[in-house]
Design a protein around this nucleic acid. Structure first.
Lengths: 187, 187
DNA sequence: GATGACATGTAATCAGTTACATGATTAG
DNA sequence: CTAATCATGTAACTGATTACATGTCATC
């Protein structure tokens, strides 16, 4: 009877437009995948669940050039439930960061290998940052400045803004780590 | 035969000092809990596993004023395995942030309730930030400036530094969210 | 005698990933 | 005919949380 966070994630997407399970799986890679992922194996059963609870409905749509699909639509009840959930404070998320775990033990490591590790991480996060900045610029361009908070696009903009801030700090921290580790190599 | 991330987390702690399962559970709350948590129900079986694989050893220690405990010590083999793991690039972690999910759907919400949500989040992260800054100051004070990368304390310092940067950005983003939402209320 | 910190375990459940399984349709 | 995309499902496994379970010792 309870809706899982994944359930709300699917409702969040369906509140914007009707989609098939396959479509939802695509969107759970991107853009939602930046902060909430799910495989299709988790999505299909969840859709059955949501439908049983009356949050969504589906109709089979025949297509000419592709196999038929089930198109899911959010119901009024689903929208109401989603709306109530949106402003409920989320439970503090369990933080799990393996790189920080490794950082905690970095004193044990070969310092040259440690430098490599953080250089690689810096690059990965710099790439992520570039991607987010591009998405952000894209939104600003296509919606004529910043979207307002009552439009769906505001969600895209606000989340990517967080992504940019996060990745910027991550890159800066990796650089600082490299500096610290190199000081040890020099002496 | 494979060691889980939790296993490495425990080795990371045992590389600093011998500890009991109970002690480890405490440290998995803090300081490690800031980036990797585990309950005692997960720790005890994992310790048995690590011992079976020869990474750790235990001896029962009788105490006068407390019940007896199993004191675990890292072995040479354990230390070698840990050392190799530390500089291996971690798999990209699955990002899951329920607040960003809600943010993505915030256009559906009552704007006044949305403001409350982000004000509350701002406060939570401001508290976290204050805690991290205090820990950071504490390390700087007790180790006479910044620890160097070959000392265990460097791990404490480097991780808390990331925590400070992260929470600062989080607070700033929450404030920005409140601003955006309030603009909608005013008009 | 009750509460709380110390101490160690197991069992049940849940969320999520990986693997298994099938089939339509299009483009090369 | 083969590979890629579209499309939908189930099964097995893993990591983690919550609940169950027991017992010591000190303090109030």
């Amino acid at each position: 009877m309870r809706i899982s966070t994944l359930g709300y994630a699917l409702l969040t997407l369906l509140a914007r437009e009707p989609l098939s399970g396959y479509d939802l799986a695509q969107r759970m890679k991107r853009p939602l995948g930046f902060f909430w992922q799910a495989q299709h194996s988790q999505i299909y059963p969840e859709l059955a669940d949501l439908e049983e609870q009356g949050c969504i409905l589906h109709q089979v749509v025949m297509q000419e050039d592709r196999p038929p699909k089930k198109l899911y639509t959010i119901t009024g009840a689903g929208r109401t439930i989603l709306q109530a959930w949106v402003t409920q404070p989320p439970a503090p998320p369990p933080q799990r960061n393996e790189l920080l775990l490794k950082t905690y033990a970095i004193w044990l490591a070969d310092q040259a290998l440690a430098v490599d590790l953080f250089r690689t991480q810096e690059q990965l996060h710099a790439e992520r940052l570039a991607l987010y900045e591009q998405i952000q610029a894209n939104i600003e361009r296509t919606s004529g400045g910043r979207p307002r908070s009552h439009e769906p696009r505001f969600g895209d903009y606000a989340t990517v803004r967080m992504g940019v801030a996060y990745e910027r700090e991550y890159v800066a921290w990796c650089r600082w780590m490299v500096e610290q580790l190199q000081q040890a190599l020099e002496s």
